[in-house]
């Protein structure tokens, strides 16, 4: 047995024994690369995700809603920061990850390439998008890589108010004036299917899933999580008095789950290719913030260097 195979076996044995892998531990190159890719994409999603919701901060309809939304979008900055830091333990810098994002080479969650067109969208994003995100994220708290798992514990703890915030907005609108109810339904119509796509391709079309499950980076399959989401949301939509825009959605007593219709993966693929309604705006906004901030970062760096040499 070669030394490498021995190391790999020992590594997998540790994973199987539910031990955490820490940054300085030996790990297969592919494990490191997978994690860097996944954690940085996750971080990018948080940062880009600030934009569609940030879009409504200045238009929030009450002061209570305004501070809640502002605090929520700020949390997303924090979550991006924790996640970038987790990836940095693997030997990649935050600036390197930014470069990939800004150049359009890195992926982030496609959902954020949809526009927020009404105030109800802030409710729908909180309720559906954060709802889907939480389902994806809770299992990550037990991910085999220590820094990622710890970051996710913090993220999930903070995130718990986000979905409630969204649901409360939807509840208020759905039980408000007829115009507000209509606003809520229209928003659900637009956000439902994109939220369903957040769990990624069907299991038979998801090439990396098996390895990620073996490494315990991923704990549940895309389709299992999606089904869980459907089951939960079907009941919550009923509480709201809103209709999920899927005529094929029915309770299936044999399966003990809700059946649902087919996802239009063509739309998903187009967005991945950069053809979503807001791909360009999102990337432009990130690039602009980064480029406009360059002189500020240079100034702070220069200032610190001056003070350091003055005291040295």
């Amino acid at each position: 047995m070669t030394q490498l195979l021995q190391l790999e076996d020992r590594f997998q044995a540790r994973i199987d024994a539910e031990q955490k892998i820490e940054p300085k531990d030996w790990m297969p190159d592919a494990y490191r690369k997978t994690l860097i890719r996944q954690i940085s994409q996750h971080a990018h999603s948080e940062i880009v995700g600030m934009l569609p919701e940030g879009n409504w901060i200045t238009r929030a309809p009450s002061l209570r809603r305004k501070v809640a939304l502002l605090a929520k979008v700020q949390d997303e900055a924090g979550h991006g920061l924790y996640l970038y830091a987790a990836a940095e333990t693997l030997g990649v810098s935050r600036d390197q990850m930014y470069e990939e994002l800004h150049a359009g080479k890195a992926k982030y969650s496609s959902i954020f390439n949809y526009p927020t067109l009404s105030w109800a969208d802030i409710g729908a994003v909180g309720w559906l998008v954060d709802g889907a995100a939480i389902m994806n994220q809770v299992p990550l708290c037990k991910c085999s890589f220590g820094p990622y798992a710890r970051a996710m514990v913090r993220v999930c703890k903070e995130e718990s108010f986000h979905q409630r915030q969204g649901f409360e907005i939807m509840m208020t609108l759905a039980h408000g004036t007829p115009a507000q109810h209509k606003m809520a339904q229209e928003s659900l119509n637009r956000w439902w299917w994109p939220s369903m796509m957040m769990f990624g391709p069907n299991d038979d079309a998801s090439p990396h899933s098996a390895q990620s499950m073996r490494w315990k980076i991923k704990r549940y399959s895309n389709d299992d999580l999606r089904q869980k989401f459907v089951d939960v949301m079907a009941e919550q939509a009923a509480v709201l008095g809103l209709t999920i825009p899927d005529p094929d959605m029915h309770w299936n007593a044999d399966r003990g789950h809700y059946d649902f219709g087919t996802i239009d993966w063509k739309e998903f693929d187009e967005i991945l290719r950069g053809n979503g309604p807001c791909n360009k705006e999102r990337l432009d906004a990130r690039n602009k913030a980064w480029n406009d901030g360059a002189w500020v970062r240079e100034a702070a760096t220069a200032f610190a260097a001056k003070r350091k040499s003055a005291t040295a």
């Binding site: 940062i47 600030m50 934009l51 940030g54 901060i57 200045t58 002061l63 209570r64 305004k66 501070v67 502002l70 605090a71 979008v73 700020q74 900055a77 924090g78 991006g80 920061l81 970038y84 906004a285 602009k288 913030a289 406009d292 901030g293 360059a294 500020v296 970062r297």
Partner: peptide, 29 residues
């Protein structure tokens, strides 16, 4: 200040500005 949220020169600065914004809106309330 809240207009800066998501557009700051660095993540840490972005968050600091939002904290100030939240303080001020809280005081106003």
């Amino acid at each position: 200040l809240s207009e800066w949220c998501g557009h700051g020169p660095a993540l840490e600065i972005d968050m600091a500005m939002t904290n100030i914004s939240l303080d001020l809106i809280g005081q106003a309330r």
